[in-house]
């Protein structure tokens, strides 16, 4: 164990913490909004709405995130002209955009399944009670279905948050200098891979520990 390497890599790896948190935060936010839309789509009766929603969930849940990231990043490079023509290339040109896009779509697919499960778990008689006192459909959804579904989904969503913290490390494969990216650079710079690995691993454990506590706090608050 080389303590010099450890003491030099601590500040460097910690300086990448905002990048990792930024990736996770923005992907979770965008992914959650998408997930609600997809979950609602999947519960629609019209086939032209529920089929695409289910297909989206199937594709992103059944293939590895790594290949999704490569497909979006390197794959889009093959369509540079076309993307420039529709004015999207300046977005796809940026690794950060591609990483957040891939992570958001991926978490949206998993979260949509979680939310759909939550919505289905809401007891029918509650909805009927809402209708009986004259609530409109949108009111029933906003005041009864959605809050209950969220509470029901929270433990599963907590797992998804932890998976996202871990998944964000794959952004390092498309040049993003997150915690894992900086770890890789330090490892090759000092020709000594194990010491900085301890630091990087501890950072992820710490983030996940805090995330677990936050989710647990919300679970307690929302408990009946």
């Amino acid at each position: 164990m080389d303590w010099d390497i450890i003491s030099e890599s601590v500040p460097a790896i910690f300086s990448a913490l905002p990048t990792t948190l930024g990736l996770v935060g923005s992907s979770l936010l965008i992914g959650f909004i998408l997930a609600v839309l997809v979950a609602l789509g999947a519960l629609q009766k019209a086939w032209f709405i529920n089929r695409p929603a289910n297909l989206f969930v199937y594709i992103f849940r059944s293939s590895p995130l790594l290949i999704q990231i490569f497909l979006i990043y390197y794959g889009s490079g093959q369509f540079r002209q076309e993307l420039t023509a529709v004015g999207l290339w300046h977005l796809f040109r940026e690794p950060w955009f591609c990483a957040v896009l891939a992570l958001s779509l991926n978490t949206a697919a998993y979260t949509a399944e979680i939310i759909r499960g939550g919505i289905k778990s809401v007891p029918l008689d509650l909805l009927e009670a809402g209708a009986a006192i004259g609530m409109k459909k949108s009111q029933i959804f906003r005041r009864i279905t959605f809050p209950l579904a969220i509470r029901q989904s929270l433990p599963a969503y907590g797992n998804e948050v932890i998976l996202m913290v871990k998944s964000s490390s794959l952004a390092s494969t498309i040049t993003i200098m997150d915690v894992t990216g900086v770890y890789k650079e330090i490892a090759s710079e000092y020709f000594s891979p194990l010491e900085p690995l301890l630091i990087a691993g501890s950072i992820y454990l710490l983030i996940n520990f805090i995330a677990t506590q936050i989710i647990a706090y919300f679970e307690r608050r929302l408990a009946i």
Partner: peptide, 18 residues
């Protein structure tokens, strides 16, 4: 600076204009 694991990945991004 952008760093790549292999020279081939760098070539792809150079051609793509990234």
């Amino acid at each position: 600076i952008r760093t790549y694991a292999t020279q081939e990945q760098l070539d792809l991004d150079l051609q793509a204009g990234r």
